[in-house]
Design a protein around this nucleic acid. Structure first.
Length: 627
DNA sequence: GGGCCCGCAGGG
DNA sequence: CCCTGCGGGCCC
């Protein structure tokens, strides 16, 4: 092994004898020793990675009974950063690694079998649920750990090392370990031919930083900076997850667990746009996202559900942007009303958590993280901790991707509402009116828009390299719903409205039956035993997209029906039927003004549906889901 | 760590 | 145009 030496007390590298610049220096998270980046045998992927252990500390942890998956994670990171691999190859390598099969690559021969017990919770002896990791490198379930601390214990149950007071009072979930366990479970259950899941890793290194400061900004850095370019193409008032289709730079969308350094970077990827405010929304339209950043002491975080506090009531005199002290009652106006509207309609609300929330175990250790969509099940007002009225919201998670802190392989299922004690003293309790727009479909096994998402009231603005701005406006065309249904959702083989649509990675849509028919002469599902590169290539060469001739052999290996698209088609078809009925009735009663109005309303709403869908998220390769 | 206070973004 | 806002950097 190459010699490994850190910097000395003067900051000079003991290996190359040079004094590296701060940007070339990396501090170990465990012992805080600085290291010269370019003298490290295996430098971390990113400078902003604050979870880096120096070679001494990672060796140390390796000698201990439990290695907190440091090697495993660095191996995973290495695979993910290998630009020569396709996503599919990466997935395969990860599976090999996590299943303990050992890598064929020159990568660390040291692989950790996650199921060998070494990572287990010392209390329940199972793989930790919501894992927390002590500085001494032992893992526990959050619940088991809290129980232990609740008994007044302050030492590690495994090695008796002292647990830092900060960790005892406020343990934080090791979401990297949660993810590693999740991936390992997938690899194990999926077997060698298991589908490459849509789980992902965050590459900090490919995150452009284009925030800038103007002449008049007196403070340096991002304190008074202008926002950089918005990379995603969803309109600013877009509800719900941000799909791959609206992510032209990466073509992957914003995925649960994506983490950014600060609110400005989070903004650039569209997860939560305001760079100070905690709520994004419009009082007459709804709220799209919220940030949990610890700004309001009444907040209460339980991961899958949390109690959120509205904004306002603060004294901002003295040119302040935020304040700890409340000086007047909050009311359901402005942003608080926007949240209440999202509650009534059952819209999905994106949630980001910031490291600045110190009282939550579910907050990320650093930066701002996207945790998926939640619904607001109820809202009300109550007397806040400071004695004045605050608006309150019960958020419950309803995302198709698993939360960053869980090792469950699948996303949320509808869950019973938690019991909220403070509802007893609440005033103005508001609940949903009618069926929620975003809901769980038992048949399809996922969350989706049961009602069409609200039509965007804004345009998407793209800024070209030369600085010119282009506005992409929506245009309403006077075409029947039926006609446009065919146009937007027609199979590219049979030219009829898609039935059981498959969306290829190249974003072309076909009925399942049509595409299967097109390849009926060949083995449609590749033989599981035939995985050598040669066999693969031989079969690949004949499996091309009928529309664009792109190679779709990988996709055809396990094609999944685009359920979201299917849902929208169904909803549109029923809209079209309704329209037809309305037209019939209006033909009969065309002297009746009221009926005529109803017709125009109805047509209007179908138009809205189509407008929304046009710029929306459906034409993306379908993500795989658990059954 | 806590207090201060700035430009910016967006709602209305 | 004015008001609000769960940031962020700096100074102490």
């Amino acid at each position: 092994m190459a010699q490994q030496l850190p910097c000395d007390s003067d900051g000079q590298c003991m290996l190359c004898k040079q004094k590296p610049s701060p940007s070339q220096t990396l501090a170990c998270r465990t012992c805080a020793t600085p290291w010269h980046l370019s003298c490290l045998p295996s430098p971390p992927l990113s400078l902003s990675d604050t979870h880096w252990d120096c070679p001494d500390c990672s060796d140390l942890s390796n000698h201990q009974p439990v290695a907190p998956s440091a090697h495993l994670l660095s191996a995973i990171r290495h695979i993910q950063s290998d630009a020569s691999l396709t996503d599919h190859q990466k997935a395969k390598k990860r599976q090999q690694l996590l299943a303990g099969a050992g890598g064929s690559s020159a990568e660390p021969s040291k692989t950790t079998d996650i199921f060998d017990g070494s990572l287990n919770c010392s209390f329940c002896m199972q793989l930790p649920e919501r894992p927390v990791t002590t500085p001494c490198g032992h893992n526990f379930c959050l619940r088991c750990f809290e129980k232990w601390i609740g008994q007044g214990k302050r030492t590690c149950a495994n090695c008796r090392a002292l647990i830092p007071a900060k960790m005892a009072s406020q343990p934080r979930i090791n979401s990297q370990l949660a993810m590693a366990i999740r991936l390992a479970k997938v690899a194990k259950s999926g077997g060698p031919s298991g589908a490459p899941k849509t789980y992902h890793f965050v590459h900090n290194e490919d995150r452009p930083d284009t925030a800038f400061t103007t002449e008049r900004a007196k403070k340096t850095g991002k304190a008074n900076a202008c926002s950089g370019k918005i990379f995603v193409t969803v309109p600013p008032d877009h509800f719900g997850p941000i799909p791959a289709e609206n992510d032209p730079t990466r073509n992957r969308g914003v995925l649960v667990g994506d983490t950014w350094g600060d609110r400005l970077e989070c903004r650039q990827w569209g997860a939560h746009l305001p760079h100070v405010a905690g709520i994004a929304g419009q009082s007459a339209y709804g709220a799209q996202s919220v940030a949990l950043s610890g700004g309001y002491e009444d907040d209460e975080d339980h991961g899958e559900w949390f109690l959120y506090t509205g904004s306002g009531g603060r004294d901002l005199t003295g040119n302040k942007r935020t304040s700890k002290v409340q000086s007047f009652d909050q009311s359901f106006t402005s942003l608080n009303e926007a949240l209440r509207l999202s509650c009534k309609k059952g819209f999905p609300v994106r949630v980001v958590r910031s490291h600045k929330e110190k009282r939550s175990s579910y907050a990320p250790e650093s930066g701002v993280r996207y945790d998926g969509v939640y619904r607001i099940e109820k809202c009300w007002r109550k007397d806040g901790i400071q004695g004045l009225k605050v608006c309150r919201y019960l958020f419950v998670r309803c995302d198709n991707e698993p939360a960053p802190w869980t090792s469950d392989e699948c996303g949320d299922r509808p869950r019973p509402l938690p019991k909220i004690d403070e509802l007893k003293g609440a005033e103005g309790v508001t609940e949903r009116k009618g069926d929620p727009s975003w809901d769980y479909d038992e048949e399809k096994g996922c969350w989706l828009w049961k009602k069409p998402p609200p039509e965007s009231r804004k345009s998407v603005e793209t800024v070209h390299k030369d600085g010119t701005k282009v506005r992409v406006k929506r245009k309403a065309k006077d075409v029947s719903v039926k006609e446009r249904l065919l146009k937007e959702f027609g199979c590219q083989i049979c030219r009829k409205v898609l039935s059981s649509p498959l969306t290829t990675p190249c974003a072309h849509n076909f009925c399942k039956a049509c595409l299967e028919g097109a390849f009926s002469g060949q083995s449609f599902i590749r033989n599981r035993a035939c995985q050598s590169g040669r066999t693969l290539r031989a079969q690949k060469s004949v499996m091309k997209c009928p529309s664009c001739s792109n190679d779709i052999a990988d996709f055809l290996q396990n094609p999944q029906v685009n359920r979201e698209m299917m849902g929208v088609i169904e909803s549109l078809q029923s809209q079209a039927e309704e329209d037809e009925k309305s037209e019939e009735s209006s033909d009969k009663n065309d002297e009746n003004l009221h009926d005529a109005m109803e017709v125009s309303k109805s047509t209007d709403s179908s138009e809205k549906v189509l407008e929304e869908i046009k710029d929306s998220d459906l034409n993306q390769p379908h993500k795989r889901r658990k059954e």
